[in-house]
Amino acid sequence: MSAKKSPEELKGIFEKYAAKEGDPNQLSKEELKLLLQTEFPSLLKGPSTLDELFEELDKNGDGEVSFEEFQVLVKKISQ
Rank of each mutant, 00 (worst) to 15 (best):
1 M>L: 01
1 M>S: 01
35 L>C: 06
6 S>R: 02
65 V>G: 01
18 A>Y: 01
34 L>T: 13
56 E>C: 15
7 P>W: 05
52 E>H: 14
39 E>A: 01
4 K>P: 05
45 K>H: 11
41 P>D: 10
76 K>L: 02
16 K>Q: 04
44 L>V: 12
73 L>A: 04
16 K>I: 02
69 E>R: 07
76 K>M: 02
41 P>I: 13
29 K>V: 13
19 A>R: 06
1 M>H: 00
41 P>E: 02
55 E>S: 09
53 L>G: 06
5 K>E: 04
79 Q>P: 15
46 G>T: 12
64 E>R: 10
21 E>W: 02
20 K>L: 06
37 Q>S: 03
42 S>K: 14
74 V>M: 12
6 S>P: 01
54 F>L: 14
29 K>W: 06
32 L>H: 00
60 N>Y: 09
52 E>W: 05
45 K>V: 09
78 S>N: 15
47 P>W: 10
11 K>E: 07
77 I>Y: 04
30 E>F: 11
58 D>H: 05
66 S>K: 06
30 E>Q: 14
76 K>R: 05
31 E>N: 13
46 G>D: 13
70 F>G: 00
74 V>K: 14
70 F>D: 00
69 E>K: 10
45 K>F: 06
46 G>V: 10
45 K>R: 11
72 V>Q: 07
56 E>Q: 07
11 K>C: 02
54 F>W: 14
59 K>V: 15
58 D>P: 06
62 D>P: 09
53 L>M: 12
49 T>Q: 14
51 D>E: 06
45 K>P: 11
18 A>T: 03
42 S>P: 12
17 Y>I: 01
6 S>Y: 01
34 L>E: 14
13 I>L: 09
17 Y>G: 01
14 F>N: 00
78 S>R: 02
56 E>V: 10
60 N>M: 03
49 T>E: 09
28 S>T: 05
9 E>K: 07
29 K>D: 11
18 A>E: 00
52 E>S: 11
13 I>W: 02
75 K>P: 02
77 I>W: 03
69 E>D: 12
18 A>W: 01
16 K>E: 04
68 E>A: 10
4 K>T: 14
32 L>N: 00
11 K>N: 09
34 L>S: 08
54 F>D: 13
28 S>R: 06
27 L>C: 12
62 D>K: 11
13 I>R: 01
58 D>A: 04
59 K>G: 15
67 F>D: 01
64 E>Y: 07
50 L>T: 10
61 G>R: 08
7 P>R: 06
36 L>D: 00
15 E>F: 12
70 F>R: 00
35 L>V: 13
71 Q>A: 09
62 D>V: 09
44 L>K: 11
65 V>T: 13
67 F>G: 03
1 M>C: 00
59 K>F: 15
33 K>Y: 04
79 Q>C: 09
51 D>F: 04
61 G>D: 05
37 Q>Y: 04
27 L>F: 01
5 K>T: 11
3 A>I: 15
5 K>M: 10
38 T>G: 05
75 K>M: 05
12 G>A: 12
45 K>Q: 14
79 Q>N: 03
52 E>A: 11
75 K>W: 04
69 E>S: 06
44 L>G: 08
40 F>A: 02
44 L>M: 07
68 E>R: 08
53 L>A: 14
72 V>E: 05
36 L>P: 00
13 I>E: 01
41 P>F: 10
25 N>R: 06
52 E>N: 11
55 E>K: 08
35 L>D: 00
21 E>N: 13
63 G>N: 05
62 D>E: 14
64 E>F: 07
44 L>H: 09
18 A>R: 03
32 L>C: 05
46 G>C: 09
14 F>W: 05
76 K>P: 02
74 V>R: 02
6 S>W: 01
23 D>Y: 05
72 V>C: 06
22 G>D: 03
71 Q>M: 09
46 G>N: 13
2 S>V: 15
51 D>Y: 03
41 P>H: 15
23 D>C: 06
36 L>R: 00
51 D>N: 13
36 L>Q: 00
11 K>V: 04
30 E>K: 09
72 V>F: 09
41 P>M: 05
17 Y>S: 01
35 L>N: 00
48 S>F: 07
8 E>H: 03
6 S>C: 01
40 F>R: 04
18 A>L: 02
7 P>L: 12
73 L>E: 02
37 Q>A: 07
8 E>S: 04
66 S>A: 11
60 N>F: 03
25 N>S: 09
25 N>A: 12
73 L>R: 01
54 F>H: 07
48 S>I: 12
61 G>T: 12
70 F>T: 03
46 G>S: 10
41 P>W: 04
36 L>M: 15
74 V>G: 09
38 T>M: 08
29 K>Q: 05
32 L>E: 00
27 L>W: 00
79 Q>G: 15
31 E>L: 08
22 G>Q: 02
55 E>I: 09
78 S>T: 15
34 L>K: 13
24 P>A: 05
46 G>F: 11
51 D>R: 06
56 E>K: 06
54 F>R: 05
5 K>Q: 02
35 L>Q: 00
14 F>R: 00
5 K>D: 12
14 F>I: 01
38 T>Q: 12
36 L>I: 10
19 A>D: 09
46 G>L: 12
62 D>M: 04
76 K>V: 02
9 E>F: 04
28 S>D: 13
18 A>S: 07
45 K>L: 10
4 K>D: 15
37 Q>V: 11
73 L>P: 00
78 S>M: 07
11 K>F: 13
38 T>P: 00
61 G>L: 07
63 G>L: 04
32 L>S: 04
45 K>W: 10
64 E>H: 14
60 N>D: 14
39 E>Y: 02
60 N>E: 15
29 K>P: 13
55 E>C: 10
37 Q>D: 14
58 D>K: 11
48 S>K: 14
66 S>P: 04
37 Q>M: 04
36 L>N: 00
38 T>A: 13
64 E>I: 05
32 L>A: 13
8 E>T: 08
63 G>S: 07
55 E>D: 13
69 E>V: 10
62 D>A: 10
3 A>R: 02
19 A>L: 12
46 G>M: 14
22 G>Y: 02
28 S>V: 03
2 S>Y: 15
21 E>G: 09
23 D>E: 07
30 E>N: 14
77 I>D: 03
39 E>R: 01
31 E>Y: 06
55 E>F: 14
2 S>K: 15
8 E>K: 11
41 P>S: 14
36 L>G: 00
20 K>I: 05
24 P>I: 13
37 Q>C: 06
34 L>P: 09
53 L>T: 13
44 L>I: 13
18 A>K: 02
53 L>F: 15
8 E>Q: 13
38 T>E: 10
75 K>A: 04
71 Q>R: 05
26 Q>C: 05
34 L>H: 14
73 L>Y: 07
34 L>V: 09
58 D>R: 06
